[in-house]
Nucleic acid binder design. Structure first.
Lengths: 150, 150
DNA sequence: TTTAAATTTTTTAAGCCTAAAGTATTTTTT
DNA sequence: AAAAAATACTTTAGGCTTAAAAAATTTAAA
């Protein structure tokens, strides 16, 4: 009956991860909205672009963020309207476009990212460095499709 | 500079939790859709109702699931259409309604829940019972607003 | 080369989600 | 009792999300 217990324990772990994740996301969402007039999905997209100096194709963006193609299209549309991002034609392939942060977008993200790290640090105040590291490693090594980078 | 390192480590932990959570949710979503013709939000609502034999008020449901009131309204509307759930007037307070699983809803959820546990168990195959327990406890004890039950 | 298949992206339809405003009802205050 | 405040829920507007279909282009096969 150990398999039984293990299964229950894993289920409990999942439910708690889900609860914490939702709570943190909800807090981030609210702060991004009230303090930076933006949304979490937009922040996530900008983070991906910020991490890669050359910009990314829509394709890569959607794979990296694990969201659908059509989803990325809409978010980028709105970021372009906001002047944070631009679509750049790719020479040699007229199907694809590369998406880059504008200077304004980069500056804006840079400010948000610093705050974001402080928020997370405060929200996870109860987690010691050792535990953070241990859990991080564990999550990192979960078998595919649960892990593949970062 | 340990505070600096700790902050980075917590940020990394958060990003990994987010990634794993999204991946698991995405897998659950797809299986619920293809194998049970339903959605994760509906499953979550039914789980909350299943756990509480007497049904819940809209209010309690939205607090328990950490989603907005209006959101619950829509999901319940659709579950009622599907015949999984019913709204029952509360005697003595005509503002509120109690929401209960129907017999069909209970039977349907019961089947899904068993599979759901197997899916989770398989997805977290790499996590030993000791680790599951340890991480679960840690997440459970994160300071408010990160925890308040289960 | 013409056709077929694959790739890249957008569009569409349906559902999820939130904040804010609105409706109805109950409770509290005055 | 009348007015004000609080509670329970729904509606609305806007954005996020997906799967599936469509459009444009490129690559591979015949």
């Amino acid at each position: 009956m150990t398999a039984e217990r293990l299964s229950k324990e894993r289920l409990r772990l999942w439910l708690r991860m889900l609860r914490v994740t939702r709570q943190v996301e909800s807090t981030l969402r609210e702060r991004l909205r009230t303090e930076h007039d933006t949304t979490l999905p937009r922040f996530d997209v900008m983070a991906a672009l910020y991490a890669d100096g050359n910009g990314l194709k829509m394709n890569e963006l959607s794979r990296r963020l694990r969201v659908s193609n059509g989803n990325v299209t809409g978010i980028i549309d709105r970021l372009v309207e906001d002047g944070c991002v631009e679509r750049i034609a790719i020479e040699g392939d007229r199907r694809a476009t590369r998406v880059c942060l504008t200077d304004a977008g980069r500056a804006s993200f840079s400010k948000m990212a610093a705050e974001h790290e402080r928020w997370i640090n405060a929200l996870f105040e109860g987690v010691a460095e050792e535990d953070a590291h241990h859990i991080g490693e564990l999550l990192h090594r979960l078998p595919t499709p649960l892990s593949d980078a970062t």
